[in-house]
Design a protein around this nucleic acid. Structure first.
Lengths: 341, 341
DNA sequence: TTGAAAGCGCTAACAA
DNA sequence: TTGTTAGCGCTTTCAA
């Protein structure tokens, strides 16, 4: 059996309350007595019982608020799945989680939701932020009021937010480059299709890809970046045009959405599997293309973890006082081919 | 706040004990009353509080025994890491975990250890088994005595063991084939180096690789399987010989250990990066070769999960009565290139 | 500065 | 068949 507070108390000849004060640095205790108790606890290998702690703490009514973009994409659905799992898990330990879905990328709405969550008694907030000054300000206000904020999926820089959980977009681009470098022939051309020029994460993927490609395959020419605005139709048109223009186009790196369009264009010319395609996000449709062989690799960003971890991070902070291990918790970059889906 | 037994009891006009009996099917209760209570619980969205449950159950002294091969390989060290993490986690909920490391692959020793763990009061066993009839018998005896057994890393067939947690070796071979098929040129030759002819998991990897290779790259010739007996020296010699014998050797698939030897042989002829190498296991030395570019891909089998999950699976079974979701819990097959290590 | 005691939600033994 | 109660390990309040 594990060591309990009571056992330590007996050995130290004091009461349970005193041991508690000593081990949790609650003050109101004689320094020597405290030191002695800590020594005994160390010697006995004391590990606090989480169940007992959770039960006693359940009076504190720890509440975590989550602000998440509406789950209208398969990716966000997967995120939400992780969120709901984490919610169930911490609620079984006596805490509460309030999930607020918002639609579109409206900073004001995010700010309003934060306020509402605070009024509802939230002790911590996890959210997918948008780039906005007023939002930054609000985040810092919350921090000042001792309400930690965790960002996930995208980050909001220069604030006191506790940590960010999401993908290292630059690294993701590099991983794609490493794959592409292995599978395209010498002296060939490669096309990059991105989403929005303004999107930070798309930008970083492209940067990582182009940089690494230049570094390890000097013979390959990377064409100017095209933007598909996450639109299959646009991606299809771009692909068609570039295929026409560049005879020896050997590979396409999709830094954002548009797989469907690219595949349609390739299949129409019977080039599926010939022109190598590497893309992002493990959506059902993307996986289909992978299985068919029209695309060669998909890079995943572990949506589930992105939904799950922020809540757990906040819970650990609020419940155990444990700070996250690092400020940037990058999720693993997952490589999928048709066999390990 | 979450719903409690007490709240249900009040609404149903009965006592907490009765609600407990109803929701946990403990019998000794009027069927109609029970049904009514269950309905109310459902309506109120009752979720049992894990902390309360854990605390009450801690009198049962749930003990889990783990039998693991000595941690003298980096892989097993990683497994052990997962084991220790899971141990800490369930012990913080009031259970106990006894980890027994054994040396070599001696069935008798495994059987002895199982007996010892039973005498020490273990209510469940997680282990890396070896193929042996006496061991099978012992496993079945334990099952008969209501002590569930979970196998991990390797499996033991035809017994009543609760489940197996580990890699799908056949699929791992296929994933490797999918990668190799993308990176070797037409009309080239590929070498397979396995470990032991008798090792089930090596055999399955080879089978998966060869089968899939034949299916998707008819132009490529797969040479006869060579065995390196997990020995770098042997792997090196094989590589040297085959390089001499086959001019257009384009790829090597290593189904077991020996990466160091293969790389040495390739580097000696300045063929690192030219002859494509795909291997298994994310050991430090292997990762080094990947970073240097001498090998192209490593397939991981998530050692940590293999150490962690068996304990959690047993704990869920013993604590919640929850059966594992599937009999074969295959760990994800992880693809690593030099950028996502 | 310390001790005593109540209570968190649940299980289980005992009493009715 | 049902109710009552003690107790799991911990936190926290109140009293000493």
């Amino acid at each position: 059996m594990a060591v309990t507070l009571q056992q330590i108390a007996e050995k130290a000849g004091v009461s349970r309350g005193t041991v508690d004060r000593a081990l949790n640095n609650r003050g109101r205790i004689n320094a020597e007595v405290a030191e002695n108790i800590r020594r005994i606890a160390r010697e006995m290998g004391y590990q606090p019982n989480r169940a007992g702690r959770a039960l006693a703490m359940s009076r504190h009514n720890i509440t975590i608020g989550v602000i998440i973009q509406a789950a209208d994409t398969p990716f966000m659905e997967k995120v939400l799945e992780g969120t709901m799992e984490a919610k169930a898990e911490v609620e079984r330990l006596g805490a509460s989680v309030i999930v607020e879905k918002i639609h579109g990328v409206d900073a004001d709405q995010v700010v309003d939701t934060m306020q509402r969550l605070k009024e509802a008694g939230c002790n911590g907030i996890a959210m997918v932020p948008v780039e906005d000054d007023k939002l930054k300000e609000t985040v810092n206000t919350f921090i000042g009021e001792n309400i930690p904020v965790v960002t996930f999926n995208s980050d909001i820089e220069d604030t006191g937010r506790l940590c960010f959980i999401g993908q290292n977009a630059l690294q993701s681009g590099k991983v794609a480059a490493g794959l592409m470098a292995e599978i395209v022939p010498v002296e060939s051309k490669i096309l990059i299709i991105s989403g929005y020029p303004s999107n930070q994460s798309h930008k970083n993927r492209v940067k990582g890809f182009a940089g690494e490609m230049a570094a390890c395959r000097e013979d390959v020419k990377v064409l100017d970046v095209q933007y598909a605005f996450d639109d299959d139709k646009v991606a299809e048109r771009i692909t068609e045009e570039m295929l026409k223009e560049h005879k020896n186009l050997a590979g396409i790196y999709l830094a954002a959405s548009g797989v469907g369009g690219v595949c349609k264009a390739l299949d129409a010319k019977d080039l599926g599997g010939k022109v190598k395609v590497i893309s992002n996000d493990l959506t059902v449709r993307n996986e289909e293309c992978l299985r068919k062989g029209t695309i060669q690799f998909l890079l995943g960003q572990n949506a589930y973890v992105q939904g799950y971890e922020p809540i757990m991070t906040l819970f650990n902070k609020l419940f155990d006082g444990k700070e996250p291990e690092q400020e940037y918790a990058y999720t693993e970059i997952v490589i999928k081919n048709r066999y390990n889906l």
